[in-house]
Simulated assay, not measured.
Amino acid sequence: MDITKRFHRIIAIYFQLQARSVVKAQDLAARFDVSLRTIYRDMRALEQAGIPIYGEAGSGYSLTEGYKLPPTSFTKEEILSIAASEKLMQKFVDPDLFRHFCAAINKIRAYLRYSDKDNITQLEDNLVMGNSAFMFNENVPDALSILFESLSLKKVAAITYRAVHRDEPNQRLIEPVGIFHEGNYWYFVAYCHLRSDYRHFRIDRIQQIKRTETPFTKTHKPLSHYLEKRTSTPTTRVRIRVEKEFARYLQWDRLHYGFISEERKEDDIYMTFQARNIENEFARWYLMFADHAHIIEPEELKSHVRKIVSAFHL
């Protein structure tokens, strides 16, 4: 059993080496939940099998330039995941990036047996994803592609961006740090030359985008650093009581508003949040289901809700 497990791990390490220019031993150890010493032994096993690996313990490993094995066979589960991933990409990325993805997938399909191709077609014909056009500005179909390109090449991007609090868009030069999906939208973190600081942007608010040939002016930390910094912003503890029969409809949205935990009591669900913006964001979300819920705390949130309601002109 241990021999089989090690064999599969060594094969997986090889594919990691094929997929990346440099692979760190620490990352492999974390990925496979083994010690560094185990990874070093696995690397020696690959070298003894004739795989030309360049690198050393403590730094990074890579395959000698130009070395590749012939295409491998795919399992049934891997074959079906190709079809599923294509449908997911169609839903969650912009049209330009999806076009590039399809071109890559078609190259993989060229190596498949006819029976595997039939299995993919069968799944594709019976897998439907809902429309997600609201994630992107339809006039900017290549926003994700250009952001990825700008990030990988470390070249400044020029965007026309309409912030939520502005009626008119403005011009910005940015250095993209990373891209992430949250709630129903794509966001990215970038160093903004206009503000001389790091900012979060929403991709569907980009009106125009173009990659320049200007190199980055700064060395940026990993995306996780800026996301952790964002989560450290002050929050307010919120507790609400929601009717049990209605609470299920909030399971997905509540994660975007700082949901922490829930407790069931008789016919109600008591939910606890650490909300970043109770004055507008949380209060307006709460109004969407206020007839099925009650605010327990804080009183400040009740005041914000009443203020919004009093401004309605019916």
Results as ranks from 00 to 15, higher is better:
I108D: 10
C102M: 12
V164C: 07
Y185L: 12
F98E: 11
R172Y: 01
V140T: 04
S132C: 10
L123K: 06
G183F: 04
A158H: 13
I108A: 14
S150T: 11
A133L: 01
F98W: 12
A103F: 06
A157C: 02
F180P: 08
N170F: 15
H165E: 10
E149W: 05
H100D: 15
H165D: 13
K155G: 07
A158C: 11
T121P: 05
N126D: 10
E168N: 03
V189L: 03
R113E: 15
A103L: 05
H100A: 13
P141E: 04
G130I: 09
K154L: 14
N137I: 00
N131M: 08
R109C: 07
Y161Q: 02
F136T: 02
V177N: 00
N126K: 12
F134P: 00
V189Q: 07
A163D: 08
S145N: 09
N139G: 10
D167G: 03
P95M: 06
G183P: 08
P169Q: 01
K87P: 04
N131E: 14
T121G: 05
N170V: 13
S152H: 14
V189H: 05
S150G: 11
I174S: 01
E124A: 14
V164R: 12
T160E: 13
F148L: 12
F148M: 10
Q171I: 09
E124P: 07
A157I: 08
S132H: 08
M129V: 15
I179K: 01
A83C: 04
S85W: 10
M135T: 03
A158E: 14
S150E: 09
R166N: 09
Y161R: 04
V93S: 05
N126H: 14
